[in-house]
């Protein structure tokens, strides 16, 4: 979700500095507070590697809605990282 976006080298640098374990702990904690659909769609996309089209079928929502959830989740996670690691 993060590394594929070339605009945010900051996240890659943070990943190098913190290590994946620390980043995953933060992501787990933040996701824990997210609404259930956001958590679920993030999990399907990132952890279980389903495509947007597959998630759309699984969830019974449009591809655009899935993409919207992922964009919002990414945005909120980035915001949380910027607050946590200024």
């Amino acid at each position: 979700v993060f590394i594929e976006d070339p605009e945010d080298e900051w996240i890659e640098k943070l990943n190098e500095e913190l290590g994946g374990d620390q980043m995953h702990k933060h992501i787990d904690m933040v996701l824990h507070r997210f609404p259930a659909p956001m958590k679920s769609i993030y999990d399907l996309a990132v952890n279980q590697r389903f495509s947007v089209q597959e998630i759309s079928k699984i969830k019974g929502i449009s591809v655009e809605e899935v993409e919207s959830y992922l964009v919002r989740t990414r945005k909120h996670l980035l915001t949380s990282f910027k607050g946590r690691y200024p």
Partner: peptide
Amino acid sequence: FLDDIEKFSNTEWIQMQEDYSVD
């Protein structure tokens, strides 16, 4: 939570992490 996510300070994030770890 999402409405306030931009407002949380570094200290608040650390506290949230500690609370989450305890849970």
